[in-house]
Design a protein around this nucleic acid. Structure first.
Lengths: 124, 124
DNA sequence: ATTAGTGTCATAGTGTATTATGACACTAAA
DNA sequence: TTTAGTGTCATAATACACTATGACACTAAT
């Protein structure tokens, strides 16, 4: 895992974990790496991982069994779909649209983007 | 101007100024607010504005006349189009595409996005 | 020459993310 | 009961963005 300069590490850990859940690599009920283990893996301090896990617990996507570890909450996937979709439309999409306007990007420039969107139309 | 929590202020000032240039609100040759003036306007420290201006000067989009002030460089617009397009395709677009896949967003969800893209096709 | 406005530099202080480390409570298994 | 693994809390140290402030050099206009 490589971190971006311009975003807090504990938020990037959260983003990475959220992605694992939404893509199905982590399933509800799964035990996730312990605070110490993940910290060692990604070469980050224990406290930083703790902060990520605490945040995700507060968001309702992780559950915590003291002395045992953290687990993906049963309703994590649907909760996350809600959170992430809301975030996407409120925070992510508007500046993207603005940027596309300003840079005058057309269908040809954004071919790969359009392909993905249309491939999602079929799956209904 | 309201700042986001999760991005450095001096970078947000730069983004804001870049947008003004690309949308034509600031023209090549225009004098921009002095370091002190802008700092007072947006209630930020002089040094923070200085850091933004120094960054933009280094990027070749601002020019500096000592004792007079900062000016939009003549080639600012084309320089910026290059920088911003490269940044967009390398850094911005890939995670967006991934997010659209993960959240299964279709043409209906992204109607406004598609509208903007297609409106850019005409202008050629 | 003086004045006001510009950028520039240096210093010190504040807040916060991150690190480093130790200690403690809880749980499961030997 | 002991041991190893878990989360949790507290403390101190480091790094960096940002603030606050003063001083200085340059430029244009009076």
């Amino acid at each position: 895992m490589d971190f971006s300069e311009h975003k807090n590490i504990f938020l990037q850990i959260r983003d990475w974990m959220v992605d694992q859940i939404l893509t199905g690599k982590l399933q509800p009920g799964d035990k996730i790496p312990s605070v110490r283990e993940l910290a060692a893996d990604i070469e980050v301090n224990r406290n930083t991982v703790m902060r990520s896990y605490a945040l995700m617990e507060e968001e309702g996507i992780l559950e915590n069994k003291r002395g045992i570890g953290f687990f993906i909450s049963p309703e994590a996937r649907s909760t996350l779909l809600g959170i992430q979709r809301k975030e996407f439309f409120k925070e992510t999409l508007p500046p993207i649209i603005h940027q596309i306007q300003v840079l005058q990007l057309n269908s040809e420039d954004l071919e790969s983007l359009l392909a993905v969107i249309h491939s999602n139309d079929a799956k209904k």
